[in-house]
């Protein structure tokens, strides 16, 4: 299902959650809405799903204006951040809910529920109640329940946010595979850029209720439209006031054109990756990301003077070009 959003605006009191947002999502794509908290990404998802009404603007699904239609009429599957399991129903009844509402024959419901529970690998838990499941199992149940009604569009709100790291990675790949098999148009909200890069084939970066940039993961990484996108996606440091990817900093043993003199303050070995923390003559700090081989060839050690040259330095109009001096994650 193709999704078109025009000039969507939504306020909560004084807070502008969405500010005249335009967006088109291709049929069959897997799109991530990426942004910090308060950027409007969840509000946008909820308006597409019909759970929230916009103050202005329109939502058009496959050419049909559904802005004022309730969620029941939109043919969507929605997975909530905390899964919203029906607590008084078994896993089986949770998944069957949408089908019983559609008054499908009993045999068909049973068959479909069994198929879905097998698909999400929790068939053995059919008679359990949600309170007896782990977080990952609840997430799988929520997915099966949303898929049961054969939605033409799957919307997921921070689907992996509440899971531990290992389960999160596993479910991510599973969602990707599921999408590759079913090709149902999928939109998910996340604040985790790595998750967006890993799963989505199209990323929409949002901040302060606006879309900052959209494109493929590669586009956004290589050609960020502004400092916000560049700092939000991937590691960033600064050299001579310009934003640079730390792996785009070449360290040279001797002075060369365009290279600045820096002191190696500290060298951190992270397996394959080596991180060199550098200080400029004026006290400004920056860091470079090297492979182990590069670091060894250069003999980068703390206390040495080297010359740093940025390969693709960028300056942007938006002034907040601070960047992160040292990666936090």
């Amino acid at each position: 299902m193709a999704i078109v959003v025009r000039q969507l605006t939504k306020r909560f009191g004084d807070f502008v959650a969405l500010d005249r947002v335009d967006l088109e999502i291709r049929d069959g794509s897997l799109t991530a809405l990426l942004g910090p908290s308060g950027s409007g990404k969840t509000t946008l998802l909820r308006i597409i799903g019909g759970l929230e009404e916009p103050d202005a603007g329109a939502v058009i699904l496959d050419g049909r204006d559904v802005t004022r239609m309730p969620p029941q009429a939109r043919g969507i599957g929605f997975v909530f951040q905390h899964y919203a399991p029906f607590r008084h129903m078994t896993v089986h009844d949770n998944v069957a809910f949408g089908l019983t509402i559609r008054k499908r024959p009993r045999a068909e419901i049973e068959r479909r529920v069994r198929e879905l529970l097998e698909l999400v690998q929790i068939a053995h838990l059919a008679d359990r109640y949600p309170s007896q499941l782990s977080g990952g199992q609840r997430q799988r149940m929520a997915l099966a329940r949303a898929l049961a009604v054969e939605p033409r569009m799957l919307l997921l709100d921070e689907p992996f946010g509440a899971l531990d790291a290992r389960v999160r990675k596993e479910l991510r790949q599973w969602l990707r595979r599921l999408h590759d098999e079913t090709h149902v148009t999928t939109v998910f909200v996340t604040h985790d850029q790595e998750e967006a890069m890993d799963v989505a084939d199209h990323i929409v970066v949002m901040d302060h209720g606006r879309i900052e940039q959209e494109g493929t993961p590669r586009d956004l990484y290589d050609r960020p439209a502004n400092a916000f996108v560049m700092t939000f996606i991937g590691p960033v440091t600064t050299v001579d006031g310009a934003l640079v990817r730390p792996h785009d900093i070449d360290l040279l043993p001797d002075p060369e054109d365009g290279a600045v003199e820096v002191l190696v303050e500290r060298v951190v070995h992270l397996g394959f990756e080596v991180r060199a923390e550098l200080v400029h003559g004026d006290g400004h700090r920056t860091w470079a990301q090297l492979t182990r081989d590069e670091a060894e060839a250069l003999e980068v050690t703390a206390g040495r003077i080297v010359w740093a040259r940025a390969r693709h330095p960028r300056t942007f109009a938006d002034a907040q070009a601070g960047g992160r001096e040292v990666p936090t994650g």
Binding site: L51, Q72, F78, R145, A146
Partner: peptide, 23 residues
């Protein structure tokens, strides 16, 4: 949450009340 989930699964407000809210 649960009421919204029921709505996205196609449940009207009366049915949502009876099958989700009331229990």
């Amino acid at each position: 949450d649960q009421e919204e989930a029921a709505a996205t699964l196609g449940s009207g407000s009366w049915r949502t009340f009876r099958r989700i809210t009331l229990p």
